[in-house]
């Protein structure tokens, strides 16, 4: 077994996958903590799924799918932030419309694209083993950006998320922060699609955070624990998927949920 593990680290694609997992853990750990604390999980789901429209159009035009996904994710993120402040349409309805519109556009354009779309499944379900050097560089840049933003503005992010109205009364540029954070959410989603795919991404943004929340109610600690838990879950999921020869994305997610359930159970047993 040990030899086997050492052996798989000899493969470049496997090393890439481990690197990607750690970078994913950082960006999703931080952004997910924000999403969970602010109860924006449905928003994140909407942005993730709407980005499929961009992937479809990019396929049709022969462009880089991640570029298309970025445009759609950013537009829907900004759209949600904008429309949720207006009273004439319900917040969750806006999200559902963008969510399904993106999926519909994606399906139509992929259908219209001549020939077979070989990587399509990897966008829906992810494939961490296809991650290349460029992907890792992008994920690295994103992690640095997110880390920097949250270390510089940690207190402001916490206080604005807790009580927007009060922050406004104190002359804080709440809207600017909210848009900035929405852009980081959209970028995090897009760049992590390749790891676990559109359909499963939401759990990287919520499951480690809820596991962390079982240990602590401090926002900073939730962030740090989420990163560690996401990393452990991803790497162990990756190794398990390799040995059992099952899809990596699904294994990682299942693993994260298993960790959550075990921690919950363990906590309850220890209390008794």
């Amino acid at each position: 077994m040990m030899n086997g593990i050492i052996e798989i680290f000899g493969y470049q694609y496997f090393v890439n996958a481990i690197l990607a997992s750690s970078l994913t853990a950082i960006s999703c750990g931080i952004i997910g903590s924000y999403i969970v604390a602010k109860r924006m999980v449905f928003v994140a789901g909407g942005i993730t799924h709407s980005s499929f429209g961009g992937i479809g159009i990019a396929y049709f035009l022969g462009l880089n799918p991640i570029l298309g996904a970025s445009v759609f994710a950013l537009l829907s993120g900004i759209g949600i932030e904008r429309f949720t402040k207006k009273a004439d349409i319900r917040n969750d309805s806006v999200i559902a419309i963008l969510w399904s519109m993106g999926m519909a556009i994606g399906i139509i354009f992929i259908y219209l694209t001549p020939g077979y779309a070989p990587n399509l499944m990897s966008y829906l379900f992810g494939n961490i083993l296809t991650v290349n050097t460029a992907d890792i560089l992008f994920l690295f840049g994103l992690s640095v950006l997110v880390l920097l933003f949250f270390s510089l503005f940690y207190k402001k992010i916490l206080f604005i998320s807790f009580d927007e109205e009060y922050a406004k009364s104190q002359n804080i540029r709440v809207e600017l922060f909210n848009y900035g954070l929405m852009i980081l959410v959209a970028l995090t989603i897009v760049l992590n699609i390749k790891i676990v795919g559109i359909i499963l991404l939401i759990s990287l943004l919520t499951v480690p955070q809820n596991t962390a929340n079982l240990f602590t109610k401090n926002f900073k600690k939730i962030i740090i624990y989420s990163i560690v838990i996401a990393f452990i879950g991803s790497v162990s999921g990756l190794i398990i998927s390799y040995y059992l020869n099952i899809p990596s994305g699904a294994t990682i997610i299942f693993n994260l949920i298993l960790i959550y359930l075990l921690v919950r159970l363990g906590k309850r047993l220890l209390k008794l």
């Binding site: 207190k155 916490l158 206080f159 998320s161 807790f162 929340n213 109610k217 401090n218 926002f219």
Partner: peptide, 11 residues
């Protein structure tokens, strides 16, 4: 929301 009494006052 994950925030303590001390943090709210400091806000």
């Amino acid at each position: 929301f994950p925030i303590s009494v001390g943090e709210v006052v400091l806000s």
